[in-house]
């Protein structure tokens, strides 16, 4: 038998509810007030409980809420429900077909065992600037759907992320899904990061989208970075490569431009200068790959 003597455990005491609908979840969140927190995959929240960096009075577990586990890929983009685990998004060929960055970035999120449980929407709600999916939401110009007792609304990424682990959503709210717009025509993407161990949070990472014009010249080049700022940052690098033929474009120059645009902090693992160097290198590398992919997609079309 389980049970018996409750042995010392790490999380501080809390109470637990596992509502069966979004409305019921909002009711519990409202009734329990400030101390209540949504529990999705728990892969960020439970470590915080065990380290006692968070001590919510109530956990509102949304894992039994029906209808939140869908991936819908359409011509406009991909909608990912709040209970879609990283592993399922990684495996979705439909999602990758509409927006290839989803698979490319998800492959870099944590280790397989953590991807089996952690959710993509949870990582966005967690708003960690070292997270891959916050950067991808920003780079693709995505949004989230937020349910509150007052109704449902769509919040664009720029209005959603306010700071590290801080979003514009306050009070009782459940993020129902995240929407990632489709990759435009004549475009290619790439994603790369440097981590101390594959699957760990990146020391620095970059995701990019390159779009070509009908003459195979660079029309636009944009990049989003992780672990370099307080919120996901998107930088337009078109000034360095715009109008250049894709096969001879000055990707290294775009890397240098990006190096000057970011303002990272140093920490135990990397100085600010080293992070700037990584930004330059990863930018040049990923832009070249994305440009080649855009060309290949144009030729295939």
């Amino acid at each position: 038998m389980l049970g018996g003597d409750p042995h010392p455990v790490k999380p501080a005491p809390f109470s637990y509810a596992d509502p069966g609908s979004v409305e019921e979840a909002l009711d519990v969140l409202t009734a329990e007030g400030e101390g209540a927190k949504v529990l999705a995959g728990g892969q960020s929240l439970i470590p915080l409980l065990s380290m006692r960096l968070a001590a919510p009075t109530t956990l509102v577990d949304i894992n039994r809420v029906p209808g939140l586990d869908g991936i819908t890929a359409g011509p406009d983009g991909v909608r990912v429900g709040a209970l879609v685990r990283h592993a399922r998004l990684l495996a979705s060929a439909e999602a990758a077909g509409v927006q290839p960055l989803l698979r490319r970035a998800t492959a870099n999120v944590a280790h397989p065992a953590i991807r089996n449980r952690g959710t993509t929407v949870g990582s966005i709600a967690h708003a960690d600037p070292s997270g891959e999916m916050t950067a991808v939401l920003a780079l693709t110009g995505g949004s989230v759907t937020v349910a509150t007792p007052g109704g449902r609304e769509t919040v664009g990424w720029g209005d959603f992320f306010l700071g590290p682990l801080e979003t514009s959503v306050h009070g009782p709210a459940v993020v129902l899904d995240a929407f990632f717009p489709a990759l435009p025509e004549r475009s290619g993407t790439a994603f790369a990061e440097i981590a101390r161990r594959k699957g760990d949070y990146a020391v620095c990472g970059a995701g990019v989208v390159v779009t070509l014009d009908a003459d195979r010249r660079v029309e636009s080049a944009r990049a989003a970075y992780l672990s370099v700022g307080l919120v996901p940052e998107v930088h337009d690098l078109t000034d360095a490569v715009g109008g250049q033929p894709v096969d001879t474009a000055d990707w290294a120059g775009a890397g240098e431009l990006a190096r000057g645009l970011v303002d990272p902090d140093g920490d135990l693992h990397a100085s600010a200068d080293y992070r700037r160097l990584l930004v330059a290198t990863l930018t040049a590398r990923t832009l070249a790959d994305a440009g080649a992919e855009a060309l290949a997609r144009m030729e295939a079309a």
Partner: peptide
């Protein structure tokens, strides 16, 4: 006990899962 080392990994419905990261 925070997901990094993997020594606590068990299978939940056949899928590797950190037993220190689920209730």
């Amino acid at each position: 006990e925070h997901g990094v080392c993997g020594s606590c990994t068990v299978l939940v419905d056949g899928q590797p899962t950190r037993s220190c990261l689920v209730l």
